[in-house]
Simulated assay, not measured.
Amino acid sequence: MTTTLHDFEAQRLDGTPVALKDYAGQVLLIVNTASQCGFTPQFAGLEALYRQYQGQGFAVLGFPSNQFGHQDPGSNAEIGAFCQKNYGVSFPMMAKVEVNGPGALPLYQWLTQEKPGFLGSTAIKWNFTKFLVGRDGRVIRRYAPLDKPESLAADIERALAATA
């Protein structure tokens, strides 16, 4: 059996488990986030995408990580409050995770194997690396931190138009 995003689990900011199979049939944008990064303003663009496409079966899932320059040192509760207060984030934010190394969340180990980065690297290079996942749970594309959320709209629309 082929592994898909739907085979993994995560934890919400409040620690409750979430089976990613609950998102089966939706297009997802998986993003490793940070609250004190030069790319942090991308939260606004991610929220805009979420609000624009949510009614069509699209969601953004944010995964805070403190692995890059210690730019997300807060607790899960502090991260959630920051995102809501400063960017009006309403999309699901998960508990803080590692995205690289032996302690990496299994979901991230899988994502980076499915869509390696530049020159085939499986490492996440920095905060706000993004993965677009189709309704079937398969990774469609990986985006660099420099790729602004608004630049992903056409790819999201194509993925939403595709059938699982």
Rank of each mutant, 00 (worst) to 15 (best):
T40E: 11
P145C: 14
V27R: 14
A154V: 04
L160R: 00
T112D: 00
C37M: 03
D147L: 08
I124T: 04
F118A: 10
P17H: 11
M1H: 14
Y87D: 01
G45L: 14
P92M: 08
G80T: 07
S75Y: 08
G88W: 09
G62I: 01
D155M: 10
M94H: 01
S121P: 07
T122Y: 02
L105W: 00
D155P: 09
Y50D: 09
A164N: 08
R141Y: 04
G88A: 10
F118S: 10
E150T: 05
Q113C: 05
H6F: 15
G80S: 09
Q67P: 13
G69Q: 11
L5H: 10
P145R: 13
L20A: 02
G101F: 05
D147K: 09
G80Q: 09
E157I: 04
L20S: 01
E9P: 01
S35I: 08
P17A: 15
A164F: 14
D72L: 04
I30V: 12
L132Y: 07
Q36N: 01
K21I: 00
G120K: 03
K96H: 12
Q42H: 14
G80I: 06
I79Q: 10
V133L: 15
S65Q: 05
G15T: 06
T2W: 12
K21L: 06
G57A: 13
Q42D: 10
V89N: 15
A10K: 02
P116S: 00
P73V: 08
A161W: 09
K130P: 03
N127L: 07
F39L: 14
L49E: 02
D7C: 08
V18Y: 07
M1T: 08
P92L: 12
K125E: 12
K148M: 08
A77N: 11
M94W: 03
P64Y: 08
D14M: 06
C37S: 02
S151D: 10
E150I: 01
S151A: 15
L49G: 00
A161F: 07
G120A: 04
K21P: 06
L132Q: 05
Y108W: 15
G101Y: 04
L119T: 04
Y108G: 06
F82C: 00
L46W: 09
F68E: 04
Q54V: 02
Q42T: 13
Q56I: 12
A161G: 03
T4Q: 11
E150G: 08
Y108E: 11
C37I: 01
L152P: 11
S121K: 00
D14Y: 10
Q71M: 08
A123S: 13
F58I: 13
G74N: 10
L119I: 11
N32S: 15
M93P: 05
F82Y: 12
L146Y: 01
K21V: 14
R51N: 15
G103T: 05
